[in-house]
Amino acid sequence: MLMKRLAAAAAIAVLGVGVAACGGTDPATPGPSTASFKAGSTMEKLNKAQKITIGTKFDQPGFGLKGLDGKPAGFDVEIGKLIAKELGIPADKIEWVETKSAVREEVIEKGTVDLVVATYTINDARKQRIAFAGPYYVAGQHIMVRSDDSSITGPDSFKEGTKKVCSVQGSTPATNIKKYLKDEATQLVLFGGYAECVDALKNKTVDAVTTDNVILLGFVASSNGAYKLAGNKFTDEPYGIGVKKDDTDFRNFINDLLEKIAKDGSYAKAWNDTAGKFDKNTPTAPAVNRY
């Protein structure tokens, strides 16, 4: 506590004497001053308030997982921090709000959060309600099974109607898998979190868990060989950053930033610190889509 206060006092003192050119890698360092933002824009508003509210997942290993200290950590969180930094807002001024899959559009529309970075797949239905910056990563839906099970080779294995699959309530993977099922009522289980699905897989209540590959890789890696991925990924899930539908300035601002961090290495660093623990192949940042 005392240390934190001293550090804060020191930071204020440093700022007070106007040492502006301190290290760019420190996320707590304020970025550009108010002057550089367009008058009346979201960026200016946020920068003036020196506060930003970001929605992310609290239960996605590698992307956004709330730790024992109550703060989320992961690739999405790092992207959020980079955006805040570009807005001149230090990392400790970010308020993190849990946005489960089912509520993401609503919290953006209502303005409960300023933006959402939450393994948020860009699609047309969602574009009707909100706007996406990005993509900043392309995930793909995959299927995880018990290692000794060779009967499931891909989503088509569910078409017979005997295999049971688990996913998370209100998520894109849950919606995607439905078209491969013969009967939703007898084949689909939806829980609040993936660990509950993995537990159901372990005790053979279900035969498979489906969601985006990185999350599954995390479970595979920490299971002592109990699980494996079946077949190939069968969708492309471009993750975007959700903002209000008409806020084109803010969207462009984030897109510019994404292009910048792809070049200056902070993208790769964010990956290696977080999701890189599950998936050692650092992805190349996809081209942003300025629709």
């Binding site: 089912a102 239905a125 309530q169 998520s171 919606t175």
Partner: peptide, 13 residues
């Protein structure tokens, strides 16, 4: 669960 689906996740988008 149906109510929750209709309101937040949506049916067929």
């Amino acid at each position: 669960s149906r109510g929750q689906e209709l309101v937040s996740a949506g049916v067929n988008g």
